[in-house]
């Protein structure tokens, strides 16, 4: 079951859009980080059930942050949100352990699908 969601994105507008696409009635606790490095710190501190991760960010990009988070917690559920949908990008992030890639601009439907998939993944980890 998903309770805590972390959004890692350098753009405040993108974080706002993400939050608006996450269903309000589920009572998720939502947290934000503005770059990969603070994303890792927040991850360690909060242990979110689901992390939405942008790729192109200052300080530390999403690819490196994803790699670090999976190293810290191999069961971390990370969904990459990016406008960069090159096949090699998708291949790389999936290889690093991302659950899936959501294409930007995100929609309520694409975020809903990601949350459902993340919930299934968490359930399978528990079993």
């Amino acid at each position: 079951m998903i309770e805590k969601i972390l959004i890692v994105d350098d753009s405040p507008v993108s974080r706002k859009i993400m939050k608006s696409c996450i269903p309000e009635d589920r009572g998720y606790e939502m947290f934000e980080a503005g770059d990969g490095q603070s994303g890792i710190e927040k991850y360690q501190q909060l242990k979110p059930d689901l992390t939405f991760m942008d790729l192109t960010m200052p300080v530390m990009d999403g690819m490196q942050a994803l790699q670090q988070i999976i190293k810290i917690d191999p069961t971390a559920v990370v969904v990459v949100c990016t406008a960069d949908v090159q096949m090699k990008t998708i291949f790389k992030v999936m290889n690093l352990g991302a659950l899936m890639v959501v294409r930007k601009p995100v929609s309520k439907q694409s975020i809903e699908d990601a949350i459902r998939k993340a919930a299934d993944k968490l359930q399978s980890i528990k079993e």
Partner: peptide, 9 residues
């Protein structure tokens, strides 16, 4: 960001 991402893809 979205536009440049589309261009690279």
């Amino acid at each position: 960001n979205i536009a440049f991402g589309k261009a690279s893809a």
